[in-house]
Design a protein around this nucleic acid. Sequence first.
DNA 1: ACGGCGATATGACGTCCGTCATAGGCCCTC
DNA 2: GAGGGCCTATGACGGACGTCATATCGCCGT
Lengths: 231, 231
Amino acid sequence: MAHGPISDDLLRRAPLFRRVTPADRARIAEVAHLKSYERGELIFAEGDPGDAFVAIVEGRVKVFKATPAGKEIILEIFGGGDPLGAVAVYEGNPFPASALALEPTTCLRIAREDFYRLLEHHPALVRGLLSGLTIRLAELTRRLAELTGSRVEARFARLFLKLCDQIGKPAEGGVFVPLPLSRQELADLTGTTIETAIRIMSRWQKEEVVRTDKDGFLVLDRATLDEVAMA
Amino acid sequence: MAHGPISDDLLRRAPLFRRVTPADRARIAEVAHLKSYERGELIFAEGDPGDAFVAIVEGRVKVFKATPAGKEIILEIFGGGDPLGAVAVYEGNPFPASALALEPTTCLRIAREDFYRLLEHHPALVRGLLSGLTIRLAELTRRLAELTGSRVEARFARLFLKLCDQIGKPAEGGVFVPLPLSRQELADLTGTTIETAIRIMSRWQKEEVVRTDKDGFLVLDRATLDEVAMA
DNA sequence: ACGGCGATATGACGTCCGTCATAGGCCCTC
DNA sequence: GAGGGCCTATGACGGACGTCATATCGCCGT
């Protein structure tokens, strides 16, 4: 929960602010604040008033939402440079989902009024927001289509394939995904229960497809993942 | 597939253009074209280049996407005044979904370059786009949460409750929803199969909960719908 | 060390719902 | 009127997956 000043270098990490002139970035730095979160700490909760724009500087964050049945589903996992809650802060809607730090994370926060003033003076920022929103929208429609009409195992396969492509690193015997997710979180990502998640991961462990490590996953057999994702 | 000129009155119907000054609306009218579609006609298809901004003037349109398994899921049903394909035309991405007219429909089209020029001269338009996108994003996250962890019947109940609130009209014995959807389309809206959709609707017909009419549905027993939606 | 707690694991059981098959009604064409 | 196509309807069947119960392991605090 530490607070701190902002360096220009930090601001340049967020794609949203990269194109802004250095002089203007200095003005942005004046109104922004840094805030740090422990692993497991809540950054904002579904229903909170959207009173600040948040961008991740470092760390990984899961954005999730409660289902009508009281379970939770993970909408997205964001990393350094990604904006958070841009949806809410614009028009002052409440956050439609919650955000929680998966690792020690530091975020940049800009109060709603300050952010709003920035938008008015910098059309480029608005364009950045627009394109970010369209990308998320397309991603969500993809997830929506994927959730229906395919079996759980196929969703698991697609999840790991996506993780490989996004944050996977070559390692001995396969690709390493440096993201320690619990079975519960895997279940929340794929819209199933923890037992089913455990069963699939156990079987894959035995069949040498994906191994669970202390600080992530090691994808050993990408070919069968591709195959399962098809069915 | 008729073409035609644009009246100022027509433009005012789209919330996006309502706040623009009449003089500017005239400029917009110069670059916009009208196009009519029969029931069942495709307005644009998933993967098409996003080369035009489209807004519905009259009629109802379903926006849908193919699932990996080859089925289709309906993302949203739009009506008069709603923008279509705003996601794609910005940044020139291909359409992430398809759109098809559910009724005889007329749309307003603005070519990508013209639309882009309008955006540059009218920050208010950009703001309108932004708020529209955030609303859709929130709606999609809600649908995503809803699809997982609840049984099909509950999804049906929630669908009809939402239709009642959005476009329902008081009628003898209940609320009438003037939207003739086939069993297949109901299935696509809830992420299930046509057989299951038929079974549920048949049972509800017998139990006097929802009656299927020639040109829509008559919700007779809202209380049990509320109840089913909870479970 | 001990007990408690959370995560992982595994089996038994039930059921929702998807798949397959068949049949009737309606509309249109020939 | 015959025939074909599409939508609606209904039954039989099976399997995937959710639910419940229980066991093990590691970790933490007192």
